[in-house]
Write a protein that binds this DNA or RNA. Structure first.
Lengths: 204, 204
DNA sequence: TAGAAATTTTAACGCTTAGTCAGTTTTTGT
DNA sequence: ACAAAAACTGACTAAGCGTTAAAATTTCTA
């Protein structure tokens, strides 16, 4: 019941615990990136932390909860991009370009190229439903931008649903080839993706 | 040593064996689609075949060999698209559009939306090297088309490597949402993908 | 239709790995 | 310095799963 997290402890202790949790998630994220969720053992996760496997159960009830937490945090970060785009830009073209660039940044920086989106089927049914719902909201936001662009004559008259799938695919696939230490410059990547994917929707 | 396949048996027997192998691969492909390679058990694979788990070992030395065979056949099919595009069309724009449309068709028809490309890390080192090499040849072919398009002034001056990653991502991601019984019309999907992804490279 | 070949089954092994639990060490607040 | 809380450990359990060997069954061939 350690992970139940009664908020009875001091702020300092809570903060320490929060940090440790973050360390675990970060280590897990990298392990998932290298081997995928199922092939990652608990020992893989703690290998980088200098701690035994059983210590994990102090912070998470089971392995799947770690995966869920990774998803939860990652989705929270990208979900915020939609509002940010709306407040910063007016035209659908600019908004879409911004979201793509920033989403690419999350992929390369926060997630360090971890293919989290690939591991949704590994989640327990309940968690899976939550994550899929959040992802759907995000995709709906993108579809709305595109639909508005079509209505305003900025974009060609495509099926927004399919267009969003193409965009999400291109971005999620980054996990399969991007490595932080590699030669591809992350910001340039975001810029080219935005040009490529927004350009493909634009009226000539 | 059953799967060593000494070609001493009659043509009829060989043909029968070949068909059974294909059945196994097809069933495995769908299982991998639903659960991913690691989460798929041998019982999942044979569940649809009405046969015991151990019967598989007559056709494949181990589970990983089944995954490899799936990859091998799928890649062989898409590799042929490059030559076909070259012989049918002259302009890079048309060639690229053709390859994208046909690749989407392979994803929806042959693979029925199986995310094979996601499972490369699960292959044994030797097999992995082979599959990656074949995939690299394919991607290099796409890069060549794009580079030629840039040289001829049809395409904007982008990094062909990144452009190909975006295209491959969009196509491979189809596996995560497409279902044969779903509402999206497969040929229309290929057409829109081609428009979107080629259009994003085209000079305005 | 008998014998051979190919295929499938039964039964069981062995390894991996997630998860449990009781106890120990470390850290924290007073 | 001391008691309480938190963090961690080591040994163990249980289950799942890929794999193997040998026997049984079906299919093919002559």
């Amino acid at each position: 019941m350690a992970h139940a997290g009664a908020p009875s402890s001091s702020p300092h202790v809570q903060e320490k615990r929060r940090r440790r949790r973050a360390e675990i998630l970060h280590s897990a994220l990298r392990a998932f990136r290298d081997k995928g969720y199922h092939a990652t053992t608990l020992d893989d996760i703690v290998g980088r932390l200098g701690v035994r496997r059983t210590a994990l159960y102090h912070y998470f009830p089971d392995k799947e909860a770690i995966l869920y937490a990774c998803h939860h945090e990652a989705l929270a970060e990208v979900a915020g991009l939609l509002d940010e785009a709306k407040s910063r830009f007016d035209s659908p073209k600019e908004r879409l370009g911004y979201v793509i660039r920033e989403h690419v940044r999350v992929m390369t920086d926060t997630l360090e190229g971890s293919p989290l989106a690939f591991e949704v089927p590994a989640l327990a049914a309940e968690h899976q439903a939550q994550i899929i719902a959040a992802r759907d909201r995000y995709e709906q936001g993108l579809r709305d931008i595109i639909a508005q662009g079509i209505a305003q004559g900025e974009f060609r008259s495509v099926d927004p649903k399919i267009a969003v799938f193409a965009i999400m695919g291109a971005i999620n696939w980054i996990a399969r080839w991007y490595r932080p230490e590699g030669s591809v410059h992350a910001p340039a990547l975001g810029a080219q993706f935005a040009d490529h994917l927004v350009g493909g929707l634009t009226c000539e």
